[in-house]
Amino acid sequence: MSTMRAQIPVQSAARRPLLARRRLDSERVISWVLFLMALSALSGLAVITAFIFKEGIPIIAKVGLRRFIFSSHWYPLEGEFGILPMIVGSLMVTAGAMVIGMVFGLGCAILLTQYCPPRMVSIIKPAIELLAGIPSVVYGFIGVAILVPFIRDYLGGPGLSVLASSIVLGVMMLPTITSISVDALRAVPKSYIEGSIALGATEWQTTHMVVLKAARSGIVAAVILGMGRAVGETMAVIMVAGNTLELPHSILDPVRTLTSNIALEMGYAAGDHRKALFATGVVLFVIIMVLNTIALRVSRRRSKVKVLAK
């Protein structure tokens, strides 16, 4: 080895310290660039938050928080800003989507982790994850073209409804719920499963008495993350929800969600009306923050339990 080095011309020995210094400089530059990039993401969050609150809070203060949230009169041109129907609409649509997404997503996850041969998993799992890549406007289109007429013909009502939005959003949530639940179910120690099987449990008994119990917090986190997506989704919902300003009385009634309200009216709103739309954004922001915090709490509790188990 040393003889090899000796054969390298003197020239390179002279160059070596120079190279080293240059590398150090580039390291420093890279770390600064990365730092600035990280900062820009953070400042993006800060700017958005500050802007929404700055624009939205004054109108909430002017109308009064209680009237803004609990009044169901939304007549922006007459200065009436009550967003209760939209809050209810968002919550109903989200709850419906959650039920659908959870039942089917968890079903998929259980099938993929407990019952499927590996080769089938390698086909089904990517296919479900592909759902996440379909643009939401396409979901909305399919909803309008197929789902809405179906509901109108067989269940009654205008078709554009809470139910239609819930189904569309539920399908959109599937990839999120499925892939996170799969991770949670796979994290259940194999010894739990073997122990249960060896005690005479069938596969299904093991799944619902041992595996689901052990993975519960991960599954809850999956559902809440999916819910975050459902609350925020706009385009698909606008297309199938009907967007009326009435309080919905059944799942077959049309509704308007918070996000749809902003998207539909921002184009022509001015003055207080525009500010009220920002205030709608504030409410949406708070709802999503609350959901995210719950998700974080729950997943953190899971890791604590794991440490205890060890």
């Binding site: 120690p189 739990y192 249960s196 005479g200 449990a201």
Partner: peptide, 19 residues
């Protein structure tokens, strides 16, 4: 098979209590 496993019980090398 579950009945068989109840009649032929097994203890593993590593203790595996359920949580």
């Amino acid at each position: 098979v579950p009945a068989l496993r109840r009649r032929v019980g097994m203890v593993y090398a590593v203790p595996t209590p359920l949580p």
